[in-house]
Write a protein that binds this DNA or RNA. Structure first.
Length: 474
RNA sequence: GGUCCCAUCGUCUAAUGGUUAGGACAUCACCCUUUCACGGUGGUAAUAUGGGUUCGAAUCCCGUUGGGAUCACCA
């Protein structure tokens, strides 16, 4: 039997990291077995629908390379793949379930049901409508009376099932709620739609957050009532913001889009989240999506929650950036060079930046001095290790100006040789020339490159202009 | 509160009865060096807790503590 998994997000306009990780595991389980990965949109809650949200889902999956084999946009043999378009299917199966004794019609209003419940005393809603004879209930439905369809939990004792991650789970049937399966607006709840769709779409492995562990017995009951075989279950632990809180939209925690906007590479994000709750059993940790397809196994999935650590993701992103070819890095960095002065050597700038940024977003702060020389303090010229200060800068700066003005070959090596020779001629340490030159060129304590690299980046004209400014300042 | 789940360095994790409890990030120190990075070397740092079982427990069992989930006409 072909392995089939599905990613079934609801279109709320936000691709959260935990969801993306679930999608990744679903994708990997299918692809590791040569199976199919299906995309299904769960939009049964009309109140929560967000315009454009499905595009975010499509774009995210495409960006990371998780291509689906069936879905709303490309179709497939088990469509439609949008739940709101499957409304008649759920109604049909819900009424069928009533006939099979797995559910009943309920005419209570929402408030009536709420009143009967008492959470403190742990009293569950006992639906009086369950006692209405089926024939009578059907007449009331036919007469147009508003109704919902509720599940029947008639079994006693313990429900047992096996989870691929958590092992054997046992839950008492008394704990289960006789929840609504078909709402009064005719839409199914998740509790019903997921079972019907997963069965009809022949999903073999249901992968979802572990908050569903305790309601899974209810779904199994539905499978049983229909005489269907239930799928393999793979419940995964949540991705946390800290020890107490899940990553959530409400807290403004980073979504996939946010991370990309900050200059994280999709490949790095995927690599990092794959390792949040899963490990390959070796000490390697850099994996492409294709690598993961080859080595992923559910056995190595973890049971405990994992805290999302942006610091480690940042490190990993740095690894991916450094692994880029110089050309590719330059291409990715270029958008951040908008509005740079004309004389700036952008390729030299990219070479300097490449090993120095861990996210593309860091380019802005690293290059701010290029657009405009900061109004720096003379204290910057003081460096103990280099044995320099403003006085020494004042002494060497005219000579630096002279050398640079006469310099023909504006390459890094040539500039370095010239300045080194100058230091020797003046009888000072190399650093006593190079350090003041770097401060004069940048006005910053730390820069992406040394004095000569900055000179190359800025170009001769701008470099000399800055040396002059330093002369005036000193 | 009932039920279910979870528990190894600060963080992600390895070790499926026998290891000086391993790796990675972070952190610290040193080296390299034209500032800062990159790179290299080394260090600090963990089995929540109490009982059992066993020659031997991070690992198996029970309790405790701590945390999370669930108990919607949300998914």
């Amino acid at each position: 039997m072909k392995v089939r998994t599905r990613f079934a997000p609801s279109p709320t306009g936000y691709m959260h990291i935990g969801n993306l990780r679930t999608a990744l595991y679903e994708y990997l389980i299918a692809k590791a077995a040569g199976g199919d990965f299906i995309l299904r949109i769960e939009d049964t809650d009309q109140k929560r629908y967000v315009e454009g949200a499905t595009e975010i889902i499509y774009n995210t999956l495409k960006t990371v390379g998780m291509n689906w084999d069936e879905g709303p946009d490309i179709g497939g043999n088990f469509g439609p793949y949008v739940q709101s378009e499957r409304k008649p299917i759920y109604a049909e199966y819900a009424h069928k379930l009533v006939e099979l004794g797995g559910a009943h019609y309920c005419f209570c209003s929402k408030s009536e049901a709420d009143e009967e419940k008492n959470e403190e005393l742990n009293i569950k809603f006992k639906d009086p409508c369950k006692l209405i004879p089926l024939e009578e209930a059907k007449k009331r439905v036919a007469a147009g009376e508003p109704y919902v369809i509720r599940q029947n939990i008639n079994k006693k004792g313990k429900s047992k099932y096996h989870d691929e991650v958590y092992g054997d789970i046992e839950i008492d049937y008394d704990e289960l709620d006789e929840g609504v399966l078909l709402k009064s607006d005719g839409f199914p709840t998740y509790n019903f739609a997921n079972v019907v769709d997963d069965h009809l779409m022949e999903i073999t492995h249901v992968v979802r957050g572990n908050e569903y562990i305790s309601s899974t017995p209810k779904y199994n009951l539905i499978y049983e009532d229909f005489g269907w075989e239930h799928p393999h279950y793979v419940h995964v632990p949540p991705v946390m913001k800290d020890a107490q809180h899940k990553l959530s939209k409400r807290n403004g925690d980073a979504s996939f889009q946010d991370l990309v906007a900050k200059g994280y590479l999709p490949e790095a994000i995927i690599n990092y989240i794959a390792l949040l709750g899963w490990n390959p059993g070796t000490e390697e940790e850099i994996f492409s999506l294709d690598d993961l397809k080859k080595i992923f196994t559910v056995e190595r999935l973890n049971r405990s929650p994992a805290i999302f650590d942006i610091t480690k993701l940042t490190w990993m992103n740095g690894c991916y950036i450094r692994a880029l070819s110089p050309e590719k890095f330059h291409k990715l960095a270029s958008p951040y060079y908008q509005g740079m002065p004309l004389g700036v050597d952008q390729e030299a700038l990219s070479r300097a930046l490449h090993p120095r940024v861990e996210t593309l977003g860091q380019i802005a702060e690293q290059t701010d001095f290029i657009r405009q020389l900061p109004d720096y303090s003379l204290d910057l010229y003081t460096n103990k290790k280099m044995k320099t200060d403003a006085n020494i800068a004042k002494e060497v700066m005219p000579a630096i100006k002279e050398i640079l003005s006469a310099q023909q070959d504006w390459s890094n090596d040539a500039l370095f040789e010239s300045l080194k020779a100058l230091a020797e001629k003046l009888g000072v340490k190399n650093g006593q020339v190079l350090y003041p030159a770097r401060i004069a060129l940048s006005g910053k304590e730390t820069t992406p490159g040394g004095a000569t690299e900055l000179a190359v980046i800025l170009g001769k004209e701008e470099s000399l202009r800055r040396i002059d400014a330093a002369l005036a300042k000193l």
